[in-house]
Write a protein that binds this DNA or RNA. Sequence first.
DNA 1: CAGTATCCTATTTGATACTG
DNA 2: CAGTATCAAATAGGATACTG
Lengths: 138, 138
Amino acid sequence: MTNDPFRQELLNISETDPAVDRLVEQTIGRVADKWTMLLIEILTNRECCRFGELSKACEGISQKMLTQTLRALERDGLVTRTVYPVVPPKVEYRLTDLGLGLSKAFCGVWIWAEENLERVEQARKEYVERKKDDGTVR
Amino acid sequence: MTNDPFRQELLNISETDPAVDRLVEQTIGRVADKWTMLLIEILTNRECCRFGELSKACEGISQKMLTQTLRALERDGLVTRTVYPVVPPKVEYRLTDLGLGLSKAFCGVWIWAEENLERVEQARKEYVERKKDDGTVR
DNA sequence: CAGTATCCTATTTGATACTG
DNA sequence: CAGTATCAAATAGGATACTG
């Protein structure tokens, strides 16, 4: 199992410098959240979006969270925000190269989620069953 | 730009069925969080860990969050929890195949974070500068 | 050792109303 | 249209004490 090629492939990710580790974790912390991933996916597919479009495409998000998440993305250099001085206002968002790179990185996670949806669901059902049959923690 | 090979590669991820999309998003929502990613990384590198080891390795996590996150991972079929009936108790956690697959998917995100740390930091500094120079939202 | 239980605070999120 | 502001509710998270 230790020689599992998967695992071997994964082993060299970890940093030697703990300070860098903290920074990596911080970066992950900023970027690894549901709305961020969703917005980046939408912007990957649509190339360029107005606020209202994002609001519709990103089903379930509140205006507040949308604004907040977009600001964070802009601040971190992942999307650009272009304001056209017209009435009514028009604002366009699009991925930067940096954002496109992150999108590519997220890609694997989306695929994993799609492919393993049922396995996770199944595991949850079994877990609940085991808990119902009760306490033999095994 | 539309013919960007990156983007082309990314385009076919999106589902056609909106119901499946919701499920994918839910799955992402469960799995895309800081502690989950960290614990999975640790368990990838160490293969097998006791509660106390994880507690040390996962710097900054509280006992409560550790327990909570581990239970969620177990429930979703990503780790196994093995209790040895000894005194004092010994409990071992290790990734399942499903968990190892997720680990592999996360791998790209970790690498992205490592490689683009400074670019994100730089973007943040510039953003703050722009805000200080004030309101020409550009 | 590996938790659980409890209390409490802080952060996140949503709903609603308002504005350039 | 694309937000901001405000308040309330929910949730996350930490600290501490206790247990098989």
